[in-house]
């Protein structure tokens, strides 16, 4: 915990990713950005870019197509990072549970730090979850975080040059 760690809570940047939900949660996130709730008050920005984001805000049940995408996004984020799973689908699939095309929640793919319940959660719940996430985030260090089966995943997700 150095000098700079104190400033973490003042500027959490968010990467929002919908893994195949119904967009209800996303609408709530948008309304959090809008004048009524204005989460930029807390220095939060929706960056849309894993390279510069601190909090990965995932909605939806994680369809099979999204699985690798979600992993890549998680790997591209620089530590310290926090994953927030938002909405019922993200908790084990919700209404989509055990469908042929879903992975039953975010937790099966990447480690989750904060759960925000609800279908869809209210904006107040979202902000509450974010505050929770920031607290967890402040405890984390710059150390590299490993996924389950990290080396293999890196190998399968790698990028090749064209010749």
């Amino acid at each position: 915990m150095g000098f700079f760690s104190k400033f973490r809570k003042k500027s959490p940047w968010i990467l929002h990713y919908n893994t195949g939900g119904c967009n209800g949660c996303d609408i709530e996130i948008l309304s959090a950005l809008a004048p009524r709730y204005d989460i930029e008050r807390f220095g939060m920005l929706n960056r849309g870019n894993p390279k510069q984001a601190d909090i990965l805000l995932v909605t939806g049940p994680v369809t099979k197509n999204c699985k690798d995408v979600l992993r890549r996004l998680y790997l591209e984020m620089a530590e310290p990072k926090v994953v927030v799973a938002m909405g019922a689908c993200a908790h084990g699939g919700g209404i989509f549970r055990d469908f042929y095309h879903v992975e039953n929640g975010v937790n099966n793919i990447i480690p989750v730090d904060v759960w925000i319940p609800g279908c869809a959660p209210r904006v107040e719940a979202l902000i509450d979850g974010m505050v929770e996430a920031i607290e967890i985030w402040q405890q984390k260090s710059k150390e590299k975080e490993y996924l389950r089966d990290h080396e293999n995943i890196i190998k399968t997700l790698g990028v090749e040059d064209d010749d």
């Binding site: 390279k51 890549r72 591209e76 990028v159 090749e160």
Partner: peptide, 13 residues
């Protein structure tokens, strides 16, 4: 780290 491509596979060219 990998370059960003929306988490998708990279195009060949």
């Amino acid at each position: 780290v990998h370059p960003y491509n929306c988490g998708e596979k990279f195009p060949r060219h």
